[in-house]
Write a protein that binds this DNA or RNA. Structure first.
Lengths: 260, 260
DNA sequence: TATATTTTCCGGAATATTCGGATGGTCGAA
DNA sequence: TTCGACCATCCGAATATTCCGGAAAATATA
C-alpha cells in the first residue's frame, strides 16, 4: 500500500478520503473507515481536519466534498489562457452550427474535456467539462495522439490493452498507429459510434508555435457526421475557428481577466 | 498558527500548499517554502507527495494544480440535482432573453455561482462559475439573505463590517434588514451598480419544499434593468423558470445521469 | 425505555514527519 | 569555458505527530 517510504502517508490518505467522498457522495466516519480499512477514530481525525481546511463540509453527521472545489476549479479555468481565447470562438461555432463544440486537452495520457459549448438545440450524451476518457476512443483523442511526440504516443498505445467502449471502438494499436499517419496528413480526425453509439465527432488539433495545446471538436449525431458534405462544412468551421484561436492566443490580451 | 492541537497539521499544511499554488499559479519548492515559512526540504516532501496523489503536476521544476481538479468539480456538478434540473431551463431563458442567466447558492455565508448560461450576445463582466461574492452586494445574495432563517441572516449582517464593492453597495445592516422584508413580500430582488458598475441583476429564490436551495438571476446592463417594463418581463421569465425547475426537481428523473 | 450503532473524545506508545546539511544540476556572468 | 549563486533533490537521525484502543456521548433502532 505505502510504496515510497519517503512520501507522507498522512497526505496520501487525506486525498484518498477525498476520492472516497467523491464516490460515496457523502458519508460518516465509520463507513469511510471501513472502506479505507482504518480505525474510525483515526478517520474522525482526518475528517475533522479536512473540515477545518474548508474542502469538506459536515452536515447532519455526514461529511461531503465542499463546493469550495468549484471555486478552485473555476479560478483555474478562468485563468487558463487557452480556455479564455477558445471560449468565444466555441460559442460562435456552437450557435452557428447548433451542435456541441468541445475543447479537449491531454492530461496524464487521457483526454480531458476542458470546455464545452452547446448550441441551443445541441444534443449532449452525458459528456461534461472535466470528464476524462481514453484517447483512442474518439476523434479528439486521436488527433491528440497524432500530434503527440512519437515516443509518447507509442507508449500510450502499446502500454496495456486499450479499452473498448462500443463495438466500433478501435482497440488495435497497429490500426491506431496507421490512423495516426493519416490524421497528420489530413490535419483532422473523424469518428462515429466509437465512444458512444449514435455520437460522432470531427476534431482538429490546436497547434500554437508548433506545440500541441489540445483539440477542438464538434459533436453531432453519427448520421449527420457520416454525411460527407456536412462533415466537410463542420470541418471547415472548426479549422477556421482554430486559426482565430491560435492568433488570439499569441497576440491577444493579458490572458488573466479580472477577478470578481 | 496551529489552533487545535488535535487537528492533523500535515493535512492542514498540504491544503495550504494547494491554496498557495492557486495564487502563485505554479512555483518551485523554495518559493513555496518561503511563503509558508518552512524549510524547502520539508516543502519538497509535501510537493512530492501531492504530486503522487495526482492533484499537483510537476513540469520543468514547477509544481502547479493539476487539471484533475476539473474532473473532481465536473463530477460533483454533473451529479448535482439542482444543477441538472436548472441547466436546461437556464439555457432556455438565456437564449430567449439574450442575457446572462445565473444560479447562485449559499456556501459558508457567501454566494457561490453554481452555474451560468450566456445568451449568444450576453455580456459577462468577469463573473464565472465557482466565483464567490459577499451576499449583500447583489440581488441574488439579497434574495438568499431574505429566505435564510432570521438568525443566520442576522449573524451574517451583524458580524463585522460589510464589504463595499462600488459606491452604490449597501453596507448598512439596518438598511439591508429592511430590504430583506421587502424582498420577502415581493418575492424577488433587483439591484444595479451595487456589485459592478454597469451591471444589474434580477433574482428570485428557488424554494423547494419550503427550503431555500439557491437563487436564479438574470444579469443585464444597469440601464436595461432600470427600465421598469423590461425588468418586469425578465422577472416573469425567471419566476416561470423557477416554477418549472421546482417541479422537475421534485418529480424529475433519477438525478444522477450516466457517467461517460 | 432499553439496546445497538455511530460519532466524538482522550492519553500514551509508536512511528512518520521534520529539518539541517550534503549533493548534484542549472543558469548566467565574466 | 570557468566560476559562483541558486535551486531541486536526497538523506539520516531526533522528536513532535500521528495513530489506535478504549471510554463517553450522542443518535438511531427496537
Amino acid at each position: 500500500m505505502s510504496d515510497d517510504p519517503r512520501s507522507l502517508t498522512t497526505i496520501r490518505r487525506a486525498f484518498e478520503v477525498l476520492d472516497v467522498l467523491q464516490e460515496t457522495n457523502g458519508a460518516g466516519p465509520t463507513e469511510l473507515a471501513k472502506r479505507m480499512d482504518l480505525p474510525s477514530s483515526t478517520m474522525y481525525d482526518y475528517l475533522r481536519t479536512l473540515h477545518e481546511t474548508g474542502y469538506v463540509t459536515r452536515e447532519d453527521g455526514e461529511y461531503r466534498l465542499s463546493p469550495r472545489i468549484y471555486t478552485m476549479a473555476g479560478r483555474m479555468k478562468h485563468r487558463d489562457r487557452l480556455f479564455q481565447t477558445a471560449k468565444p470562438e466555441m460559442k460562435r461555432v456552437a450557435n452557428d452550427t447548433n451542435e456541441l463544440v468541445g475543447l479537449t486537452i491531454e492530461h496524464d495520457g487521457r483526454g480531458l474535456i476542458l470546455h464545452q459549448e452547446e448550441g441551443p438545440q445541441a444534443l449532449n450524451l452525458g459528456t461534461y467539462p472535466g470528464a476524462m476518457t481514453p484517447l483512442h476512443t474518439h476523434a479528439s483523442g486521436k488527433v491528440i495522439l497524432a500530434y503527440l511526440p512519437d515516443d509518447e504516443a507509442e507508449a500510450l498505445l502499446r502500454d496495456g490493452p486499450l479499452a473498448e467502449r462500443t463495438e466500433r471502438t478501435v482497440t488495435d494499436p497497429d490500426a491506431l498507429w496507421a490512423e495516426r499517419e493519416r490524421i497528420k496528413e489530413r490535419g483532422y480526425a473523424v469518428d462515429w459510434d466509437e465512444q458512444v453509439i449514435g455520437m460522432g465527432m470531427i476534431a482538429v488539433p490546436i497547434l500554437i508555435d508548433e506545440r500541441l495545446h489540445g483539440a477542438l471538436n464538434i459533436v453531432a449525431p453519427s448520421g449527420r457526421v457520416q454525411n460527407e458534405s456536412y462533415q466537410e462544412e463542420l470541418r471547415q468551421k472548426i479549422e477556421e475557428s482554430v486559426n482565430r484561436i491560435s492568433i488570439n492566443y499569441q497576440y491577444g490580451g493579458s490572458g488573466t481577466p479580472r477577478e470578481p
